[in-house]
């Protein structure tokens, strides 16, 4: 965990120091996108080769639907309260 957080914090600090070097920040953003494409493709490869995941894909899809709806409903309920209490005059 600590290495993950250190990488992130180190990146944020570097980004902050380089914030006016727009071309460098742009390159970092482009690289991030490429890395994410690569990782998603590799995640796909491991999933495709993993029989357990493939057999349970429908089940996982159903769980995903339940989890995302639960998250959205919970957030919306709290946001309704927050809006009534703090955002009346917004």
């Amino acid at each position: 965990m600590s290495i993950i957080l250190l990488c992130l914090l180190g990146g944020m600090l570097s980004g902050w120091m380089l914030r006016y070097r727009h071309s460098l920040i742009h390159i970092a953003d482009r690289l991030t996108t490429s890395f994410i494409y690569l990782f998603l493709c590799l995640l796909g490869v491991t999933v495709g080769a993993n029989e357990t995941v493939m057999e349970n894909l429908a089940e996982l899809g159903l769980q995903a639907l339940i989890l995302s709806s639960s998250g959205i409903i919970g957030s919306v309920v709290i946001a309704c309260l927050v809006e009534k209490l703090f955002f009346k005059d917004f």
């Binding site: 992130l8 990146g11 944020m12 914030r19 970092a28 991030t32 890395f35």
Partner: peptide, 24 residues
């Protein structure tokens, strides 16, 4: 799919995400 290489690549990715956030 099963090596340290992916882990190091993840560290690089997180660093880049950080750069994007810090430089925004």
């Amino acid at each position: 799919h099963e090596s340290e290489l992916m882990l190091y690549a993840l560290y690089v990715l997180l660093f880049l995400v950080g750069v994007g956030v810090g430089g925004n």
